[in-house]
């Protein structure tokens, strides 16, 4: 069986916001080390990988592998019934077909209990190799969100060029073109806004902006985002969750003309 408790329901709400535009239904794979999700979007262009480590919950108990097939639209409906500051406990039995969710107000004078129907989901699991990327850029997640939003006014594609000088995002469309360059910043007072670049070799990649805009739904989860890139392979866009795990998105590039 599974029992996992989070001090704030807000976290699960935010995680759901971060993936529900991409994925409609997926398995939450629970085992003794934590809860993992891997799912592709319906067009098989992007993949989301989520990890919530057991030690991020208090308490956490799961004694065997338990795949929980969840429709995210349905889960979202139930999570709307939770207060952001509520203590959240999820429970599932080994052979059950429901997920129990308990929302408890901080002073414990209001307890609400919901059951979400689970489903059998036959999903393909992909092996993601450990990759040494040619360019790894760490930047403000809010800045990344703004760049994606701004350049989506110009085009539905974005070109990312990384050199040792900086990272340049550019778009070209019917109205004209635009670009935003962030220079590597060594001496920024506010650490959250610094841009750091680890570069083995320069990269230039083109992506669909629509997916980046889905990814930036994860912005409330972390002040930083890390973009890992090599030419002609999927970009990894990672938001780290404090003491809990991560949300990673992989997006296949556009190639050639």
């Amino acid at each position: 069986m599974l029992e996992a408790r989070l001090p704030q329901a807000k976290l699960l709400k935010s995680l759901l916001e971060a993936i529900k535009e991409l994925v409609v239904e997926c398995n939450f794979d629970c085992n003794d080390s934590g809860i993992a999700v891997q799912a592709m979007d319906s067009s098989h262009v992007a993949l989301v990988a989520l990890l919530l480590r057991a030690d991020g919950f208090d308490p956490y108990r799961c004694d065997r592998n338990l795949p929980l097939g969840i429709n995210l639209t349905s889960l979202n409906k139930i999570l709307k019934c939770a207060g952001n500051e509520d203590i959240l406990t999820i429970k599932a039995s080994d052979d059950g077909d429901v997920l129990n969710l308990v929302f408890e107000s901080k002073d414990s004078d209001r307890i609400s209990e919901y059951e979400l129907k689970l489903m059998d989901i036959d999903s393909e699991h992909l092996g993601i190799p450990d990759t040494q990327y040619d360019a790894v850029v760490s930047m403000s997640s809010g800045e990344f969100q703004r760049i994606c939003r701004d350049l989506s006014q110009i085009s539905d594609s974005i070109v990312i060029d990384v050199t040792k000088e900086g990272i340049k995002f550019s778009a070209s469309g019917e109205v004209g073109n635009g670009s935003v360059t962030l220079k590597q910043s060594g001496s920024v007072d506010r650490e959250d806004e610094a841009t750091t670049i680890e570069l083995q070799q320069a990269v230039s990649l083109t992506f669909s902006l629509k997916y980046f805009q889905y990814f930036t739904k994860a912005t409330p989860l972390s002040s930083r985002v890390v973009l890992s890139m090599s030419n002609d392979v999927p970009i990894l866009v990672e938001y780290k969750l404090d003491n809990l795990g991560y949300v990673r998105y992989y997006l296949a590039p556009k190639i050639g003309d």
């Binding site: 592709m40 067009s43 098989h44 262009v45 992007a46 993949l47 393909e124 699991h125 992909l126 092996g127 993601i128 190799p129 085009s155 594609s157 070109v159 070209s172 083109t206 669909s208 392979v233 999927p234 992989y250 997006l251 296949a252 590039p253 556009k254 190639i255 050639g256 003309d257």
Partner: peptide, 14 residues
Amino acid sequence: IGTQRSIDTFFDPT
């Protein structure tokens, strides 16, 4: 610009 590739052409099923 360019042809959109599929993610599952890069990662193999396990």
